[in-house]
Nucleic acid binder design. Structure first.
Lengths: 140, 140
DNA sequence: ATTTGCACTTGCAAAACGCAAGTAAAATTA
DNA sequence: TAATTTTACTTGCGTTTTGCAAGTGCAAAT
């Protein structure tokens, strides 16, 4: 289904071929900043992604090594999605998107507050958050 | 045509509503790293964007204040596209995409070389490049 | 005066999207 | 134990977007 055909060798282009659509980075966002992510959890997000689109994007991201599926500890009916190292590596990019939006768009006050933290010590924030995500990934 | 309907208040989502497709950031890339950008110049890029898609994306980016059209100094038949401040503000994001691709995808050797510069002094690179783009914007 | 260059626009088939409904297995409830 | 609900998808189908080719109109060059 979501098989990758590169349009060029350009790193920007190659990256966009993987997650350059309106939905993929929202999935990554949920995986980065929500406590836990099952299929149903993604559907609860404000943007209201359609179920078939969600399925195809998750498959695409999995095929490209950005996310992995894991067994849910509580139930066989549930699936836990998590970011791989490659997915966690998108953190700096996600922060820059937030900072750009903060500067040039209108964003909610509570988000602005969190971004103040990031602006104060970007490298520190990335380190701490990366460790958190890596630990979350470990406990299989 | 390209009128913006926000899916949510989330900064990531709002940003993607503007440039979150397979082509917009390639246009921004050309504006950032090529010497000059007319309509025809964009068409020459490796990814071979279709003429109608290019027109709709340029309109969308212009409507959202990311690019502006200027008269070409040499000819009335030509149009020069340039990044606005808002567009120039995408530089850190573009660099992070490059760095992610460098780490997790396969990219050409000559690109890797330039990225070594960026890795050495990211803040410095951003400052210098921003000044360059601002100057380019001035000379109307 | 005619041709070429440039910035688009138009038409149309193919693909992707988005909504609603359906399915199958697991978990819960009666 | 049987019936219902939850969970993770899949399927159908109408609408929208994409991508390719061809066309248009103005400016510049020949």
């Amino acid at each position: 289904m979501g098989d990758l055909k590169k349009r060029s060798e350009c790193p920007i282009s190659s990256s966009l071929d993987i997650w350059g659509d309106k939905w993929s980075l929202l999935i990554v966002r949920d995986l980065m900043f929500a406590k836990q992510c099952t299929y149903g959890d993604f559907l609860k997000s404000d943007e209201k992604i359609a179920t078939n689109i969600l399925a195809s994007r998750l498959q695409m991201l999995e095929e490209n090594g950005v996310v992995i599926k894991q067994d849910h500890p509580d139930s066989k009916a549930k699936v836990l999605y998590k970011l791989t190292q490659k997915g966690i590596g998108l953190l700096p990019l996600m922060l820059e998107i937030n900072l750009w939006a903060d500067k040039y768009l209108t964003i909610p006050a509570d988000r602005k507050a969190i971004l103040e933290e990031v602006k104060k010590d970007k490298e520190g924030f990335i380190k701490v958050k990366t460790v958190e995500l890596m630990e979350r990934l470990e406990l299989k």
